[in-house]
Design a protein around this nucleic acid. Structure first.
Lengths: 184, 184
DNA sequence: CTATGTGAATTTATTCACAGCA
DNA sequence: TGCTGTGAATAAATTCACATAG
């Protein structure tokens, strides 16, 4: 919207975009501050900045990818990360054929050298390895000081409580669909 | 657990697995029926069958994949779908180099021939195409009678209200992590 | 007049505590 | 004695309605 030259937006318009009610938008915002102008709406740039600040998205986050198979490659090519400030700073795999090659400007490193990450100040990681390797990779990432993990492996991984893990299990998401489908 | 020879499980054990309280497990189940035996617990096979029935997962769901790029290929290779009864019955792409080739026993077809699906009784679809193509693909899928869509494209797609769409936006999921990370 | 921000009312979800069955 | 199922109590989220500011 900002790029379209708009400067303000109302809670009703925002609500339409995300399919909720206008009062829900205002109530939610109100828990964090007074972002709007009565009679006018919300300044788009200011609002975006405030939300990014609340979500701690107002800085670049160095992110590490472990596992450059089909899914990992898709993630490396995925343009969606940039808008939120995620920078994939390193990628690791254990396949000798891949190590040393470049995918989207990132050189793939040997997963056994994960330890070298410690100096490089990445604090988020994406795990996209086969199931059996997931826990080992998680352990190595914890050891190296990672603070948060986005886990694509359909398996629970154990990490210290202060490390935040978000698991994306694609099969489980797909499994929610049939519930809404009449008989099939 | 069934494969490990166990026949029963208590709400407390189940609760530990999914990180909720034991009374939450029982309360949730109770909305759908009385599945357990007092003093014993829940019969594992019966419970699994009941849950699958509730979620409409007790039949094979023919599923169509559109877009066989990095992500689509990863999905074709993904073993997680099978356990819930999803069978990828067809895959489509618009790249001549891919059409006709086989990935995991599925022959890739020309996306312009999506119309031929009508006869093949698939009612779920996975969209993994570039952003610009998403709406056109969705329209074609609706025309061909699909009932539910798992959408991996970070963009809202418009479909008739009776069609259920679940969108997985990986960037948004990753964007939730920094909120939990101390300073960074 | 328009659109926000927020107390109050209402609805929904979670937690408790325990009766009742194997 | 062990564990379920569920009313009742508590907590949380949503919705309403309207005073207030531009």
């Amino acid at each position: 919207m900002s790029q379209q030259g708009l400067s303000s937006i109302s809670s009703s318009k925002l609500a339409d975009f995300v399919n909720v009610n206008h009062w829900q938008i205002r109530k939610d915002f109100s828990y964090f501050g007074d972002f709007g102008k009565r009679g006018v709406g919300y300044n788009i740039d200011t609002l975006a900045r405030q939300i990014k600040k609340i979500l701690n998205l107002d800085a670049v986050h160095k992110t590490v990818l472990v596992g450059v198979g089909n899914l990992g490659s898709a993630l490396l090519a995925y343009p969606g990360f940039r808008i939120y400030g995620f920078k994939i700073a390193a990628a690791f795999d254990n396949d000798p054929a891949k190590i040393g090659t470049k995918v989207n400007d990132v050189t793939i490193e040997d997963v056994s050298k994960l330890g070298t990450l410690a100096k490089r100040q990445a604090n988020l990681a994406i795990i996209a390895v086969p199931e059996q390797a997931a826990q080992d990779v998680a352990d190595a990432l914890v050891k190296v000081g990672i603070k948060g993990i986005l886990n694509f492996v359909p398996r629970r991984i154990n990490v210290p409580k202060k490390i935040k893990v978000i698991t994306i299990d694609i099969a489980t998401d797909l499994a929610r669909l049939p519930y809404y489908i009449p008989s099939s």
